[in-house]
Amino acid sequence: MKTITWGMIGCGDVTEVKNGPGLYLAENSKLKGITNRTKSKAVDWVNRHQQGIVYESVEEMLKDEEIDIVYIAVTPDKHLEYAIQCAKAGKHCLIEKPLALAYDEGVAIREAFREAGKKAYVAFYRRNLNRFIKINEIVKSGKIGKVSQFHIHRYVNPLTDFGAWRAKPEISGGNVFTETDIHILDYMDELFGEVKYFQFMKNSLNGNDFDSLVVNFQYENNIRGTGNWLYNAEVTRDVVEIIGEKGIVSFDFFHNDTPILLETKEGREEILLDDSIHVGLAMEQAIVNELNGIGEFHGNIDNALRTLKITDIIYHSETR
Rank of each mutant, 00 (worst) to 15 (best):
I171D: 03
V122G: 00
L159N: 12
F254R: 10
F217H: 08
K140T: 06
F297Y: 15
I4D: 03
E194W: 12
G90P: 06
I72N: 04
E66R: 12
S276W: 13
L99M: 01
F162K: 08
V139W: 00
T75Q: 14
K39M: 14
D44V: 13
H316K: 11
E115F: 04
R237S: 12
H79V: 06
D189Q: 14
N216C: 11
I301N: 00
E245Q: 09
N36C: 04
N157W: 02
E105M: 01
S172C: 10
I69E: 03
L308N: 01
A120P: 02
P21M: 08
Y125G: 05
N175T: 11
A116Y: 06
I4K: 07
P98D: 08
I135R: 05
A112D: 00
N175P: 08
L25N: 11
D104R: 08
K196T: 15
T236K: 13
E263K: 15
V139F: 01
A164P: 08
I171Y: 05
A286F: 09
W45D: 04
E105L: 00
V46D: 02
I4L: 03
G299Q: 07
F192I: 02
V58L: 09
E245H: 09
V107A: 00
L262Y: 08
N47C: 08
R48C: 01
I301C: 00
I182P: 01
N300C: 03
G227I: 04
G207R: 05
L205I: 15
D181Y: 14
S276V: 01
F200G: 03
I294D: 05
S250R: 13
I34P: 09
K140R: 11
L99W: 05
I243Q: 12
E66T: 15
I138Y: 04
I277L: 10
R166V: 02
T311D: 02
V139S: 01
D68N: 10
V122K: 04
W6L: 05
N232F: 14
K97F: 10
E269L: 09
G33C: 09
K265A: 13
D302E: 07
Y103N: 00
D209A: 02
H153I: 15
K265G: 03
E96S: 11
T180Y: 14
N222I: 11
E220H: 11
D252S: 15
A87V: 03
W6E: 07
P169E: 09
E115Q: 09
F210S: 00
Y24V: 05
A83E: 03
P169I: 03
V176E: 06
D161Q: 05
R127A: 10
N289M: 00
G225H: 06
E56D: 15
E59D: 15
V17I: 14
A123H: 11
G227C: 04
T307Y: 05
A116Q: 06
N136H: 14
G145H: 10
E266M: 12
F253Y: 15
E179K: 12
N222F: 15
W165S: 06
F113T: 00
P169W: 07
Y315Q: 04
L23A: 06
N232L: 10
